[in-house]
Amino acid sequence: MQRVNMIMAESPGLITICLLGYLLSAECTVFLDHENANKILNRPKRYNSGKLEEFVQGNLERECMEEKCSFEEAREVFENTERTTEFWKQYVDGDQCESNPCLNGGSCKDDINSYECWCPFGFEGKNCELDVTCNIKNGRCEQFCKNSADNKVVCSCTEGYRLAENQKSCEPAVPFPCGRVSVSQTSKLTRAETVFPDVDYVNSTEAETILDNITQSTQSFNDFTRVVGGEDAKPGQFPWQVVLNGKVDAFCGGSIVNEKWIVTAAHCVETGVKITVVAGEHNIEETEHTEQKRNVIRIIPHHNYNAAINKYNHDIALLELDEPLVLNSYVTPICIADKEYTNIFLKFGSGYVSGWGRVFHKGRSALVLQYLRVPLVDRATCLRSTKFTIYNNMFCAGFHEGGRDSCQGDSGGPHVTEVEGTSFLTGIISWGEECAMKGKYGIYTKVSRYVNWIKEKTKLT
Rank of each mutant, 00 (worst) to 15 (best):
N306E: 07
T426G: 01
D33W: 04
N5A: 09
E288V: 08
S217T: 09
T16E: 02
L460G: 09
V199K: 07
S182G: 08
G122M: 09
H282Y: 08
F348L: 10
C435E: 04
N306F: 04
Q2C: 10
Y115H: 15
S255A: 14
N304A: 09
T426M: 00
N258V: 00
F345Y: 09
Q167K: 03
P101S: 14
T290G: 10
V153C: 04
T386H: 14
Q219K: 11
R191K: 12
E27M: 03
V4Y: 03
K347C: 02
N151P: 05
N393H: 13
N151W: 04
A436D: 11
G106H: 03
V377I: 10
V273L: 08
P239L: 00
K137R: 09
I344F: 15
A164P: 02
T290K: 05
E159P: 04
T458D: 01
C155W: 00
F196G: 11
L189Y: 12
K339W: 08
M65L: 05
A397Y: 02
F78V: 14
G13M: 06
W88S: 15
E116V: 12
V257C: 02
K45N: 09
G363M: 13
V174W: 04
N295P: 03
D212R: 11
V263S: 02
H361P: 10
H415V: 04
V331H: 00
T16F: 13
T190S: 12
F55W: 11
E27V: 02
G280E: 00
K188R: 09
K457T: 04
G254T: 00
K293I: 04
K446M: 14
A9F: 13
G355E: 11
N306I: 07
I336E: 00
Y441E: 01
C178P: 00
V278A: 06
C119M: 01
R180K: 09
I443N: 01
C128R: 03
I214D: 05
C28N: 00
K440R: 15
K39Q: 08
N258L: 01
E72F: 15
K459Q: 14
K45I: 14
N113I: 12
K146M: 11
K440V: 04
I334E: 01
S184Q: 08
E281F: 04
T422E: 01
G122N: 09
F144Y: 04
G421D: 12
K109H: 12
M65H: 10
E66L: 09
L318C: 02
H289W: 08
R43Y: 02
L103C: 15
H267R: 05
C382P: 02
L60V: 15
Y330V: 09
G94C: 10
E193K: 06
C18I: 12
I344H: 13
C335D: 00
K247H: 06
H303N: 10
V416W: 12
T290I: 07
Y371A: 13
V174S: 07
A317D: 00
S423V: 14
S423D: 03
R83G: 15
Y341T: 15
E231L: 05
E285G: 04
E129H: 07
C178F: 00
T458A: 06
S25K: 05
T16L: 09
C435P: 05
V451F: 05
L19I: 11
S169C: 05
G105S: 12
L19K: 01
N245M: 05
H267A: 04
H303S: 08
V416I: 13
V199I: 10
D93I: 14
I210R: 07
N203Y: 08
T190V: 11
G363W: 09
W88F: 15
C134F: 02
V296H: 01
C28E: 01
Y201N: 11
I17R: 00
N452H: 10
R162D: 06
G58W: 03
I309D: 13
T276M: 05
C335W: 00
I284K: 07
E27R: 03
C97R: 03
R384T: 15
E79G: 12
D198M: 10
H34Q: 05
N283S: 03
E281G: 13
G230R: 09
F221W: 08
D378A: 08
N59L: 03
L369Q: 06
C141T: 00
G246I: 03
L346P: 02
A9N: 08
E142I: 03
T417N: 11
V451I: 13
V416Q: 10
R226N: 12
F360T: 14
T381W: 10
G398Q: 12
E433G: 07
V416T: 14
F238V: 05
G253H: 09
E159K: 04
C178Y: 00
Q370I: 02
V257T: 01
N42M: 08
N310D: 14
H34T: 13
E116T: 10
R83D: 07
S329M: 05
C134S: 02
A337M: 02
M6I: 05
V228I: 11
E159I: 06
A366V: 04
T287C: 08
V181Y: 06
V154T: 08
C435A: 04
T85Q: 07
Y444R: 01
E456G: 10
S107R: 13
R3S: 08
V374R: 07
L24H: 02
Q219I: 07
Q57D: 13
S255V: 11
E165C: 05
V263K: 00
R140N: 14
A149S: 07
K234L: 04
C170P: 01
P414L: 14
K440S: 09
V278P: 00
G351K: 02
D322W: 01
V419H: 14
S148K: 07
A279Q: 01
S49Q: 11
E193T: 05
F251L: 06
A9M: 07
R46S: 14
V77L: 10
K234R: 09
T186K: 05
L52W: 07
E98M: 08
D223Q: 10
S156K: 06
N213V: 07
E401L: 12
F395I: 02
F78N: 15
L372Q: 14
D131M: 09
G355R: 13
A207L: 04
S70Y: 09
E193F: 11
C155F: 00
C141R: 00
V4P: 06
T386G: 14
I284W: 10
E286I: 07
N304P: 02
G50T: 15
V277L: 03
V419M: 12
K387L: 11
L52F: 15
W118L: 12
E171W: 06
S220P: 10
A308E: 12
Q370A: 07
A173N: 06
N127R: 06
N138L: 11
C268V: 01
W356G: 04
S217C: 11
N135C: 13
E129L: 03
T386Q: 11
F176R: 05
V154C: 05
P333G: 03
E323Q: 14
Q2K: 06
S430K: 03
P177R: 01
K126N: 09
L41N: 15
V257D: 00
Q241K: 06
K347A: 13
L52T: 15
H303K: 07
C102S: 00
G355I: 03
Q216N: 06
E401T: 13
V269N: 00
N135E: 10
E98G: 12
N36W: 07
A397M: 01
G246S: 08
T218S: 12
E67W: 03
D249P: 12
R43K: 13
C134I: 02
E73Y: 08
C382R: 03
T276N: 07
C108M: 02
S49L: 11
I15Q: 02
I136H: 13
C134R: 02
F345L: 08
Y47E: 10
N203E: 06
L244H: 02
N138F: 05
E53L: 04
W240V: 00
E27N: 03
N166C: 02
Q408V: 05
D338C: 09
L346Q: 05
T81K: 13
S385N: 09
E72A: 15
A266R: 02
N203M: 09
F224M: 12
G125A: 04
Q237R: 08
E193P: 09
S354Q: 13
K347G: 09
P197G: 08
F144P: 00
C108I: 04
L369M: 13
G403W: 12
G236K: 08
C28D: 01
